[in-house]
Write a protein that binds this DNA or RNA. Structure first.
Length: 336
DNA sequence: AATTAGGAATCTC
DNA sequence: GAGATTCCTAATT
């Protein structure tokens, strides 16, 4: 695995304009390549459609969108004629060689100065804003699913373990939770990259980089909210009819709705067949069960039990089987 | 083999 | 007590 980040000791002091440290952004950029590799792992078929993506996945989705919807624009932005218009195959064997979005001087010699430069500058800002927005959204989604706060410094030991499990799960890292036992969020945030490596030689650097992204996001959020009551995009999402801030334990049907709300992240494991009628299909029953188990702190959760809970909704008139019954297809009785 | 259905006991808030 | 979990048997796909 590529070492995503190096020498981040001063990163907190050098937040970029968008609020993310240079190292976090570097990692995000490099993940673009990494994700392609990860998604090739089963049977060599690229999986670009949804779940288990997390930050990198959303980041990639963002690029999918740009490439498919406005390929010409992005090619111009990047100033790279070699840029593919579709991301079907991994574009670069080494992450270091991947096209990056805000490299100073990237492609600048190919573009004439003046107006075009300004346009490019603005486009880069737009891309950066887009990426940052997606990262924030993804962190918030993870928070909802794990029932933890976005700010790592507020985590208790159990929250830290949840985050580790989640990150390991998303990025298919080996399980290293034990190496971080009895650490709360403050302890974790106080650790540097070397500390992470000491505790986990295999993926300490990766975990450190991911935590750095979370720290940066929390830092940004705090900065945005100070003296500014305007609702940010993140907070808007946060205030959706969501379970995690109501204090009430989340219901399974709410959880399923939340997953369905994020096709970007979970479309591969659960998706609408007919949103208007509230008909949805569980595409990966084991994965949805795992997510539910994570959310409820029930490691032994499986689809057998989850589906039993869904069936309890039949009598209550919350969920039913659609008129034409299909395997793994259910219908909300009262679609929104 | 996986999914569906529902009874029943138990757990958790 | 509500809602979810766990375990179960039996039927269906």
């Amino acid at each position: 695995m590529a070492t995503p980040v190096s020498s981040q000791t001063e990163s907190v002091l050098h937040r970029s304009r968008a609020g993310f440290t240079e190292s976090s952004l570097t990692m995000l950029k490099q993940e673009e390549g990494l994700v392609d590799v990860l998604q090739m792992e089963d049977g060599g078929k690229p999986r670009l459609d949804g779940s288990e993506r997390g930050l990198s996945g959303l980041y990639l989705s963002c690029f999918d969108m740009l490439f498919t919807e406005d390929a010409a624009w992005l090619v111009k932005v990047a100033g790279a004629s070699a840029m593919p218009s579709q991301r079907v195959e991994p574009v670069c064997p080494e992450p270091e060689q991947c096209p990056v979005i805000d490299s100073p001087g990237l492609g600048t010699e190919a573009v004439s100065p003046g107006l075009e430069e300004q346009v490019e500058e603005r486009s880069l800002e737009q891309v950066q804003t887009l990426v940052v927005g997606e990262v924030l959204k993804d962190i918030e989604t993870a928070c909802k699913l794990l029932n933890i706060t976005p700010d790592p410094t507020e985590w208790n030991c159990s929250n830290v373990q949840k985050w580790l499990l989640w990150t390991e799960h998303l990025y298919r890292l080996p399980h290293v939770g034990k190496a971080f036992q009895d650490l709360d969020g403050k302890d974790l945030c106080a650790m540097n990259e070397e500390d992470f490596r000491l505790r986990s030689p295999q993926c300490g650097d990766t975990l450190y980089a991911h935590l750095d992204i979370w720290k940066s996001a929390a830092w940004m959020k705090e900065r945005c909210s100070v003296g500014d009551n305007r609702i940010t995009e993140g907070e808007e999402l946060w205030s959706e009819a969501d379970s995690s801030c109501s204090g009430q334990p989340i219901h399974l049907w709410q959880f399923l709705r939340e997953l369905l709300l994020k096709p970007h992240s979970y479309g591969r494991c659960i998706r609408w067949l007919n949103k208007e009628k509230g008909i949805f299909k569980i595409e990966d029953s084991a994965h949805v069960a795992r997510l539910w188990g994570l959310r409820k702190n029930r490691p032994a959760m499986n689809y057998d039990k989850l589906s039993r809970s869904i069936r309890q909704y039949y009598k209550k008139g919350i969920i039913r089987k659609p008129d034409v019954s299909q395997r793994l297809v259910y219908q909300f009785v009262h679609p929104v």
